[in-house]
């Protein structure tokens, strides 16, 4: 029974379980690497509600077609996008970043406090296909909630992919200043009700 319990623990932390690095079959092989890395499109161009809403938002087909009505108009991989606009039926993406139903996560407050996109979603600019960069398990959330200082950066750099060119000490010093200014108290950040309600 002990073996079962220990094995269970390893299993719970495995990438099979956490789905870190796993790629989902998508209707369109969308490449963040191309759009973000090569073209330099800002996250918020597509994920428009990330600053105001709990959801970052997936782009409507219309957003894809603002460019793709001009570029790659005949590309076969984009056929589902064109079909979507034609038929009015949504593209059915497979979710990559997904939380359990009993977790309430709010994008807007994280972004507004300077938690960069890459903190949870990783270097999305280097992903030809999108995978989960971090295990979205409670331990991952708590690590940051208990010690947010090194994960904060200036508000206007939030969607920047490259980490700031700061030493660990500089990161921490900056984060601590932010926490003081906004009265962020890590003692209250790991309360259950912050996420579970």
């Amino acid at each position: 029974m002990l073996g079962l319990a220990l094995g269970g623990r390893d299993y719970a932390r495995s990438s099979y379980q956490s789905q870190v690095g796993w790629v989902q079959d998508q209707p369109v092989p969308f490449s963040h690497k191309h759009h973000v890395g090569d073209e330099g499109i800002d996250c918020r161009y597509c994920h428009t509600s990330v600053e105001d809403s709990e959801h970052a938002g997936l782009p409507p087909t219309h957003t894809c077609m603002t460019c793709h009505s001009q570029l790659w108009t005949g590309a076969k991989v984009l056929e589902p996008v064109r079909q979507s606009l034609l038929t009015g039926r949504p593209i059915r993406w497979q979710r990559v970043a997904q939380l359990p139903d009993y977790v309430q996560f709010n994008h807007s407050i994280h972004v507004n406090r300077g938690v960069a996109c890459i903190e949870c979603h990783g270097r999305i600019d280097q992903m030809p296909l999108t995978w989960r960069a971090r295990p979205f398990q409670m331990q991952f959330c708590l690590d940051c909630h208990r010690d947010p200082a090194p994960h904060l950066r200036p508000r206007q750099w939030v969607t920047r992919m490259a980490p700031p060119d700061w030493s660990e000490a500089q990161k921490r010093a900056y984060g601590e200043r932010v926490m003081q200014a906004h009265r962020i108290d890590p003692k209250t950040l790991d309360n259950c009700e912050i996420c579970h309600r």
Binding site: G57, T61, W93
Partner: peptide, 10 residues
Amino acid sequence: DEEAMPFVEQ
């Protein structure tokens, strides 16, 4: 697995 379906036209 869960599907996400954005608007066609928001």
